[in-house]
Design a protein around this nucleic acid. Sequence first.
DNA 1: CGGCATACG
DNA 2: CGTA
DNA 3: GCCG
Length: 562
Amino acid sequence: MTSPSSKRSASESISPPPSKRKRSCSPDSFFSDVSESPLYVFLVDAKLNGETIEELISLVDQFNLNDTAKSQTGVELQLSLNAEDADIIVTEVRMRARLERHLDWVTAKQKAIVTTQWLRDSVRSQQLLPCGKYAALGELYEETVHNCPENNCAVDAPSKAKKENTNIRYNHRYACMRNSPLNCPNQVLIKKLAVLRRHRELEGLDVQALSYERAISVLKAFPHHITANDVQQVSDLPHIGPKILSKIEEFIQRGDITECNDILSEARYQSLVAFTEIYGIGPSTARNLYSLGLRTIEDLEKHYKDKDNAKIQATRIQAPAKKTFTSPTSKLRELGLPEMTVKEALLLREDLNVRIPRSEVEEIRDVIMNELGQIRRGCVSMITGGYRRGKIESNDIDIVISHKDLKSGGDEVKGLCATLVKRLYDKGIVTHVMHLSSFRPHNTLRTAHWDSLEKALTVVKLRDNNNNGTGQKQNQKHIHRRLDLIFAAPEVYWTAVVGWTGSIMFERDLRFWAKQEKGMRFDSSGISRRHDSKLYFPKSEEEVFELLGLEWIDPTLRNADM
DNA sequence: CGGCATACG
DNA sequence: CGTA
DNA sequence: GCCG
């Protein structure tokens, strides 16, 4: 999968202007007579095995033998021997560099470049389908749509000089192949769809919630404001099906979505949203509390008043008496750290819902790393999460920590997580520890993973050292902040960085892509091959992407969530 | 019609 | 189930 | 709810 020879750079090179082979749009083509000039199809054999090639060739024959198909489209298909003379390029290649080994970029831009699925579906449906959904390269999406034989008679005249083609990777099926900026031209629409998504999630309709999440993610990468003219293009996007498209159409027409307003006015929705803002209360618990008749945060406070030592996990209403959960208490208790209770989560709620400016994220990082420096030398760290994706304000702070020494570093960081957290707690910097994991003992049964990651989910509050001796209470500068510390062995540092940079949808699709298309397993503590569990240790973030066969995407373009 | 990320407590 |  |  490495490309040794053709390391041609991104510059457009040499080749003469390719013969502009434009299909005729003469009125003749509208009659059911098959036009004299066939539609030329070029198969890029890269990544196709012999069996697939045979299949594709026989599909072409099948199309030509099908009278319905021929009369509906008015063309025959003809395999082309070179890309230049073709109208449409069929390929399984998904990346520019790889494609450029088979045809030059200037030519590519004048063709419709589609996946093999386009051919399959076109033949099956006996017509030439729109290319948008089948564009093989996101980078050439516009060109593919424009050069698609299906529409090149219809939409030629008003071809507005489309220039804003710099953010072209937006139509891929996987979020990890799209450029998703922090803010996009369709934020208003997305915000309304997010209400539908949240509603499905709160009501336990996880699968529908996921669909909305994906649709939102796709729209997040869409490069321009959607108007009535774009409906076709939008419906061609992946993960936009009939249901969600109809919502989008409603929004285009009315500037609003009825179901969204209905949901927002539901008392139940409002309560569930409020409940789940408390750390440790998710959709299921929220619904249970609601069914007990509780409606407001005040109701919750009253409800938890007596049993104020209730652990957050104990909030379940219908205890499934069968399973006796082993108390997840042990680790914290060992270190003399108090557990998180609902009561405390309620007290923290206000603070934790306040966004954290970048400067304070850095301030906290500095304090933490200063403390760490006093117990271990040679540690390295990176702030990941929303901060790294460029957010002006973060919900929490994620710091990935490792050691600069690739060889001895694993031992250097082993156990460090608990040690550091204990120290920070004793100093009053860490006020709460919601979760603390240590190195798992090597599991000989499931050898796919080994011990490599420690993490602590904490709450911190920095001291306000603004005392001028009078002891007067000034405005408290610092409030409680959520801080996640992730300790990674040096070999998996970059994997952890990618894994903790997000966004969530980006991560899910990274793993999904790795599984579906690469037979790999990705988790923040390692990358491995699925069939033999061979492990990989990328030495930079770029190498992580390369290993997974992905183009590197800048962290600020990984904002695939709302 | 099955699958949808993955792991841990 | 909740969290990342 | 959408995809393969």
